[in-house]
Design a protein around this nucleic acid. Structure first.
Length: 179
DNA sequence: CGAGTTTGACCTGCGC
DNA sequence: GCGCAGGTCAAACTCG
């Protein structure tokens, strides 16, 4: 049985699970579900509630985001890798800026040119002590306004800015996804 | 001076 | 086995 859980809980507590970017520059387009293989992901439009297969809809109202956490991330052994399987969450945002302020502090640890894409992919790690969350940020070459952010892992600590809890973030998303 | 960024080297998995 | 692509490391560098 695949591990599978919703990542974003519509709770008022700013728990460790909220990683939705809250940039004022973005409009949320799609969430992308990452399965074990990179080419196996599927786009899930932010739309009315629906569910498909093992996915669950977690948002009410106009926006529904389906998060799939089949923890089948391709086991990519590398030095220092604990071999843990981590779910990855990706979503597209239409934004002029690459770096979306999601409330956490990130340290860039790498950048790579990506095949078939004129924009490089940037690799970030959460700087919070003991927090192993990573994210990748990449701009699409076919649509330069779209930034794909992929999160890997769960934050083990609260958001580090004084900004909002999840409800606030959700409100922002409704605003920005009103196209 | 500490925190974060840059960037080339290195490692690993995968396809051929 | 080899080459490619993606991901990570780490030293040098920048910036506040």
């Amino acid at each position: 049985m695949d591990n599978y859980q919703t990542m974003f809980h519509s709770s008022s507590s700013s728990s460790s699970s909220s990683t939705i970017p809250q940039s004022s520059h973005l409009s949320l387009l799609n969430y992308m579900v990452m399965n074990s293989h990179a080419q196996d992901h599927q786009y899930l439009t932010v739309d009315n509630t629906h569910s498909q297969g093992n996915n669950t809809a977690t948002f009410e109202g106009n926006n529904s985001i389906i998060i799939d956490m089949k923890n089948e991330t391709k086991p990519r052994k590398k030095k220092g890798d604990k071999g843990s399987k981590k779910a990855r969450y990706a979503f597209e945002t239409r934004s002029q800026v690459d770096i979306l302020d999601d409330g956490y502090r990130w340290r860039k640890y790498g950048q790579k040119a990506v095949k078939n894409n004129k924009f490089p992919r940037s690799y970030y790690r959460c700087t919070h002590q003991g927090c192993n969350v990573k994210k990748q940020v990449q701009r699409l070459s076919k649509d330069e306004e779209i930034v794909v952010t992929t999160y890997e892992g769960m934050h083990s600590h609260p958001i580090q800015t004084s900004t909002d809890n999840f409800e606030h973030i959700l409100k922002q998303m409704r605003i920005y996804s009103s196209f």
